[in-house]
Design a protein around this nucleic acid. Structure first.
Length: 951
RNA sequence: AGGACUAUAGCUCAGUUGGUUAGAGCGCUACCUUGACAUGGUAGAGGUCCCCAGUUCGAGUCUGGGUAGUCCUACCA
């Protein structure tokens, strides 16, 4: 073995071997265990969140595979409608073309080309991560099977009246020319203004203070062109006499009724609200209540129409409406129109005032454009009836969120769920299976053929398919069963569905998790006909942020590519990566500065295992996870530690008898101790898998491997292995323990660190008498109660106490670590004596002792530095070595601490309430503690006295 | 505005039903290249567990209030 751990030398070969041998596929035996990967964007690349979640999924999958389950990790990717279309359109823009230049079919071909080209980026990155997904079953939301599932679901829901088409206000993205769902809109506070406009009262009406106009306030002046009412609060005495009167809409000349509606807050602004039902969600509701006409004034680019269009709330055009707009507005962008409106009002003397105002601006999460509420024909899913079973499933525990608190988030959204707008005005996606005839009648079916047959439409009648596609999340919502072959085949669904756990981030609970539940429960049923859940558990991970708690984003330039952590990257390359392809090139300088500050030397290669271990250790219950590269370095060192421990084991066992072929063994205290500790570790690891506490799991592994196995057991094995007089049985026992514990550690750590464990396992499997081609198919270690040895654990604690005591004296007294010391023991019990006799060899080697002498209680000891281990005094004679003052200081420190502790404990014991109310055990424990402390103090005081006499 | 979450060592974080001497990694100090490992070893330093009150024999842990921060949802034109 190499002297240091070099991940790049070992990782690739194992993955290839695993995959080639089809070891990632379900075994077909044992109870089914299945995880569906949240499908990454097919043209995307791996980010820290993927690495994090996939590490957890892989750990679970490897664990269950080793437990003998019929384990499937289903992989695949998502077509990511807007995101992908956007990328390809940007490519085209470089050639000076738009998608319309190509036409729909050619454009879609182009997207598929792009997918072929970039689609394997993420899959090769997943291989680097060690993901043991079943590649032979990889699916894509746009492949034939899944598209078929999408059509089937759409048609069935339509036939059940759960999908409908309607003219409604939607969140319109004027940049991408598509509707988006509420969830895709980000509301952010921005600085704006509140304009106060005067609307003249008609027919001689006057306000209570005698004015012939009322004042309305707006943040969006341009929408006034579509105003069809003015609303006031019915209880607002200033305006009650005006209700039912009319105002004239300036510039347009339309008569607007003044209506009363509770929606209006009299306290805000002037208490008068202009109502623009076709351009504001609240106004839509108000307008509907009062029959105010829907007047649309904008086109798909959010520019002003030449002529306004009016509609009823049923979506029918009102033909006799006069949609004339003032001159000069037609074709004007909404923001240009705003300026002009303000100027025109000002010129007419109708601009009352302008105030600074902070408002929430809705922006498309992909485009960044200000979203326009716009009246369009769209397809909707009736969410309420579908949401009910999903809510029930969580309420009755069929689906459990981990951590549980996320259930509240889920409930709060589900109980107030709105219908889901599923149509998108894009080309890339599942085209809606609805066909229109010339009169605008539509027919829904699985194909044009089906539609014609079902509705008796002859070939002479022309049908055209709906141009729109479905929201990407529509197909993702079917993911757990569509990937298993639904609706064509049921067998896999029967075996692997419901899946066991969904591992995902809280940011897509609404987007995806909830919708998956709704769709799955509707379409997949249990044997008894009840709705089947898509998964039994939802493990919600935190969101990975940078070391300062900032969200990682391209524009902040703080994105970390997991592959760079694995392979390392120079500072220059990292800067180049972070500053290329920026939307706002001016940020480059700042990004470079921050990057060079955070990573002056770039990133060291750490290997996949160290990254995975780090991510695992970060998997706490917290919502935000700040990723600090320092943590990664620590765990890379941990890998090196394992590597070197294995080197040591191999150096001492290869070619030696490790008991693999039987033969008598004699186990030392150390052997029994480490085996005992191992059982506890194994139990802990199982428990932590059950509870999804990966952080505690990695901590338990770290502590055992480093602080018990390496720091103590390996050291304790040396006196045996180096002792020429030791028996064959005892050496065999030590070697066997050395190898077996290492081998068990490897299996325990394998789900988290697949590569290093496989690499080492290949070298130790024979020595540990294990058979098999790969660690990944070995049984996961099971704890054995019978191997827990409390006596051995207590004895080793004693041994450690003595050794640490001597080392402490060395350290504090500045005695060279290598200098052999004579040590005297006094006032020990019979137990101490037994322990000493049994462990003299260990003690001498580990504490570097020259001699050990057992003094009787009444023997006078020479002047010594003292350390107490329980009641036992461990004495290092001071002659020639010791600085009296240093020893005094050392003792004073211990004494102070002991006195303080005693004071506290005695305080408790003196408290009558404590003695009368606390449980027996607790009191006894405190008494014992007090006795021990008192004895310690007495000893230390005696020792101090001796020192004083000497000085 | 409503709701949720967080507050523990210099930094990033654990602390499972209230009962230890409050822990880990990184960082820091001193010493050490000893035959697995300097990506290391040994020994240390470092905490008003945000503040106040309450419940309790006993609170980092439970309750109420406050402060600070983060996020989500809904928004007043």
């Amino acid at each position: 073995m190499e002297k240091t751990y070099q991940p790049q030398a070992i990782e690739g070969k194992h993955y290839q071997r695993w995959e080639e041998n089809h070891w990632f596929q379900p075994s077909g035996e044992g109870s089914p265990y299945c995880i569906m990967i949240p499908p990454p964007n097919v043209t995307g690349s791996l980010h820290m969140g993927h690495a994090f979640q996939q590490t957890i999924m892989d750990a679970l999958i490897r664990y269950h595979r080793m437990q003998g389950d019929n384990t499937l990790w289903q992989t695949g990717s998502d077509h990511a409608g807007i995101a992908t279309q956007m990328v390809v359109e940007r490519e085209l823009a470089r050639e000076g073309k738009t998608r319309h230049d190509l036409g729909r079919d050619a454009f879609i071909d182009k997207v598929w080309e792009w997918k072929e080209q970039s689609g394997n980026t993420i899959t090769s990155q997943m291989r680097r991560l060690g993901d043991s997904v079943d590649w032979t079953r990889e699916r894509f939301t746009m492949d034939d099977g899944l598209s078929n599932a999408v059509r089937e679901v759409f048609v069935q829901l339509y036939e059940e009246d759960l999908i409908y088409r309607g003219k409604r206000l939607v969140n319109w993205d004027p940049k991408f020319h598509t509707a988006i769902s509420d969830l895709e809109v980000e509301n952010k506070e921005e600085q704006g203004s509140l304009w106060h406009f005067r609307y003249p009262l008609l027919d001689g009406a006057k306000t209570s203070d005698g004015k012939d106009y009322i004042v309305v306030a707006t943040t969006r002046p341009e929408t006034m062109l579509g105003d069809t009412a003015v609303a006031v609060n019915p209880d607002d005495e200033r305006y009650t006499h005006l209700i039912g009167k009319e105002v004239e809409l300036p510039l347009v000349g339309r008569r607007l009724p003044i209506v009363a509606d509770d929606y209006v807050d009299s306290e805000f602004g002037t208490g008068c609200v202009k109502i623009t039902p076709a351009h504001d969600f609240n106004d839509y509701e108000v307008g509907k209540r009062h029959g105010a006409t829907l007047v649309n004034i904008l086109d798909q680019n959010a520019a002003v129409l030449q002529k306004a269009e009016a509609y009823t709330y049923e979506g029918r055009p009102i033909d006799d409406f006069d949609g004339t707009l003032p001159d000069g507005y037609g074709g004007l962008d909404r923001f240009e129109a705003r300026k002009k409106i303000i100027a025109d009002f000002d010129a007419l003397g109708l601009l009352d005032s302008i105030k600074d105002h902070t408002l929430m601006v809705p922006r498309g999460d992909r485009s960044g454009a200000v979203i326009e509420p716009w009246l369009t024909d769209q397809w909707y899913v009736s969410a309420k009836p579908l949401a009910e079973p999903a809510i029930k499933a969580v309420e009755n525990g069929d689906i459990e969120f981990v951590p549980k608190q996320w259930e509240n988030t889920f409930f709060s959204w589900m109980r107030d769920i709105q219908d889901w707008c599923i149509s998108r005005q894009l080309w890339w996606g599942h085209q809606i299976p609805a066909w229109y005839d010339k009169d605008g009648h539509f027919y829904v079916g699985r194909s044009e053929q089906e539609v014609r047959e079902k509705h008796n439409i002859g070939d002479d009648i022309e049908l055209t398919q709906d141009e729109d596609v479905l929201d990407t999340w529509f197909s993702s919502a079917l993911w757990t069963f569509s990937t298993l072959g639904w609706p064509e085949r049921e067998d896999l669904v029967k075996t692997f569905h419901p899946t066991d756990v969904l591992v995902t981030g809280f940011d897509i609970i609404f987007f995806w998790v909830a919708r998956m539940m709704m769709m799955t429960q509707h379409f997949i049923k249990n044997d008894d006909g009840t709705p089947q859940v898509p998964f039994k558990k939802v493990y919600v991970t935190g969101l990975i942020r940078d070391e300062n708690g900032q969200k990682m984003s391209k524009s902040k330039g703080n994105v970390i590519d997991p592959i760079d952590l694995i392979d390392g990257i120079s500072a220059d390359d990292l800067v180049a990566k972070r500053t290329s392809g920026l939307m706002q090139p001016k940020l480059a300088q700042k990004i470079e500065k921050n990057t060079r500050k955070a990573f002056p030397e770039g990133m060291e290669p750490s290997g996949t295992d160290a990254l995975r271990f780090t991510l695992t250790s970060l998997a706490t219950q917290a919502r935000d996870i700040n990723f600090d590269v320092k943590r990664l370095e620590g765990y890379r060192n941990f890998c090196n530690k394992i590597w070197n421990a294995a080197r040591y084991v191999l150096m001492n066992t290869e070619g030696e008898d490790c008991g693999q072929n039987g033969g008598d063994v004699q186990l030392t205290l150390a052997d029994r101790w480490i085996s005992s500790r191992l059982q506890r570790l194994e139990a802990d690891v199982h428990r932590h898998f059950e509870n999804y506490r990966f952080d505690l799991m990695s901590q338990a592994l770290y502590e055992f491997i480093w602080n018990e196995y390496c720091d103590w057991y390996l050291e304790l094995s040396k006196p045996v292995l180096w002792d020429d007089n030791a028996s064959a049985e005892i050496k065999r026992g030590t070697r066997r323990t050395l190898v077996r514990v290492l081998e068990a550690i490897l299996r325990l750590a394998h789900p988290i660190m697949p590569f290093i464990t496989e690499e080492i396992w290949q070298s130790v499997k024979d020595l540990a008498a294990r058979e098999g081609d790969t660690i990944m198919l070995q049984p996961f270690p099971q704890p054995d109660e019978n191997k827990i040895d409390q006596q051995a654990e207590a004895d080793i604690e004693w041994l450690k106490g003595v050794i640490v005591g001597v080392r402490n004296i060395r350290g504090e007294m500045n005695i060279a670590p290598g200098k052999p010391l004579p040590v005297l023991f006094q006032k020990g019990s019979l137990e101490d004596k037994r322990r000493l006799e049994e462990n003299e060899n260990f003690l001498k080697t580990l504490a570097k002792l020259e001699s050990i002498t057992w003094l009787n209680e009444d023997d006078t000891a020479p002047m010594s530095a003292t350390q107490l281990v329980g009641h036992l005094k461990v004495l290092v004679p001071m002659a020639g070595l010791i600085d009296v003052e240093a020893e005094q200081a050392r003792l004073t420190k211990s004494l102070d601490k002991a006195r303080k502790d005693l004071e506290r404990v005695e305080g408790k014991l003196k408290n009558e309430n404590f003695v009368s109310k606390a449980p027996e055990q607790v009191i006894a424990k405190e008494r014992e503690k007090a006795d021990g402390l008192a004895a310690t103090i007495q000893e230390l005081e005696g020792q101090m006295k001796q020192l004083e006499e000497l000085a």
